[in-house]
Every structure is written in C-alpha cells, then in structure tokens.
Amino acid sequence: MTEKPVTEMSFEEAMAALEGVVGQLERGEVALEQSIALYERGAALKEHCARKLAEAESRVEMIRAQEGKAVGTAPAEGL
C-alpha cells in the first residue's frame, strides 16, 4: 500500500494519519527502524496540520477584516 503524500492531505486526513502514527508508536509493536520512519512521518504530519491551521486562521482574519471587525485571533468559543 502506498501512503498518500503528506502535502496532498487535507487537515482531517493528516490528523487521522497522525493519530494512527502516535498509536503505533505508543503500542511499541514496531521495529526500531520502522519507529524512526513513523516518527519522521509523524513530524511531517504535525507540521502539515500546523500549516493548515495557520492558513485557516489567516483566512478567518481576512474575512473578519472585510466585515469591518477587529483583526486578530479570538478563542473559538468566543465567536
């Protein structure tokens, strides 16, 4: 099975894949070399998710600015 490249994943796909990686590493049922590869993929997935969240935050700030609302971040529960 070929894994989908991280850069082609949606945020939701990347989060699900990251959860899978973390689960495998926590169970400790993989060989050392596979653990290292999983860790590297997990780091890439984490970075991808962080980038996607930052992009979403920027888009929300732009929308708020266009509506004449204060630009900046606010807790989600405050929206």
Score class of each variant (00 low, 15 high):
Glu33Thr: 06
Ala37Pro: 02
Glu57Pro: 02
Ser58Ala: 14
Tyr39Glu: 07
Ile36Asn: 13
Gly68Lys: 13
Gly23Met: 02
Glu47Pro: 03
Gly20Arg: 02
Met9His: 01
Ala31Arg: 04
Gln34Asp: 12
Arg27Gly: 06
Ala65Glu: 11
Phe11Arg: 15
Ala44Met: 13
Glu12Leu: 06
Glu19Cys: 02
Glu3Thr: 06
Gly28Lys: 01
Glu29Tyr: 00
Glu57Gln: 15
Met9Ile: 05
Ile63Pro: 02
Thr2Pro: 05
Gly28Ile: 06
Glu47Ala: 14
Gly28Val: 10
Arg27Tyr: 00
Met62Val: 11
Thr2Ser: 00
Gly23Lys: 03
Gln34Ile: 06
Met15Thr: 08
Ala50Gly: 08
Glu55His: 05
Glu29Thr: 12
Glu3Gly: 00
Ile63Lys: 08
Glu12Asp: 15
Glu8Asn: 10
Ser35Trp: 01
Thr7Lys: 14
Thr7His: 13
Ala76Phe: 10
Thr73His: 11
Ala74His: 12
Thr7Gly: 04
Arg59Ser: 05
Glu19Gln: 09
Glu8Met: 10
Gln34Arg: 14
Ala50Thr: 09
Gly68Trp: 10
Glu29Val: 12
Arg41Gly: 01
Arg41Ser: 03
Ala14Asn: 06
Arg51Asn: 11
His48Arg: 13
Gln24Asp: 01
Leu32Gly: 00
Val60Trp: 08
Ser10Asp: 09
Val21Glu: 01
Ala43Lys: 14
Glu12Gly: 10
Ser10His: 07
Lys52Val: 15
Tyr39His: 11
Leu53Pro: 04
Pro75Ala: 13
Cys49Val: 15
Ser58Tyr: 09
Pro5Gly: 02
Ala31Glu: 09
Ala16Glu: 11
Ile63Gly: 00
Ser10Arg: 11
Val6Phe: 03
Glu61Ser: 09
Ile36His: 09
Ala70Leu: 13
Ala76Ser: 05
Ser58Lys: 09
Leu32Asp: 13
Met62Asp: 14
Ala17Asn: 03
Gly23Asp: 04
Ala70Thr: 08
Glu55Gln: 15
Lys4Asp: 03
Glu33Trp: 02
Met9Phe: 01
Ala74Ile: 11
Glu12Met: 07
Glu77Val: 12
Leu45Phe: 00
Met62Cys: 05
Ala31Cys: 00
Val22Gln: 13
Ala44Gln: 15
Ala74Glu: 12
Glu13Cys: 04
Leu38His: 07
Glu13Pro: 03
Gly20Ser: 11
Glu8Gln: 07
Thr2His: 00
Arg51Ile: 05
Gly42Phe: 03
Glu61Thr: 04
Ala50Trp: 05
Gly72His: 07
Ala43Trp: 09
Glu13Asn: 03
Glu67Ile: 07
Leu53Asp: 12
Ser58Leu: 08
Glu57Gly: 11
Tyr39Cys: 06
Leu18Ile: 07
Lys4Tyr: 03
Glu55Leu: 12
His48Pro: 05
Lys46Asp: 03
Glu29Gln: 02
Val6Tyr: 01
Ala54Glu: 15
Glu47Leu: 06
Glu3Phe: 01
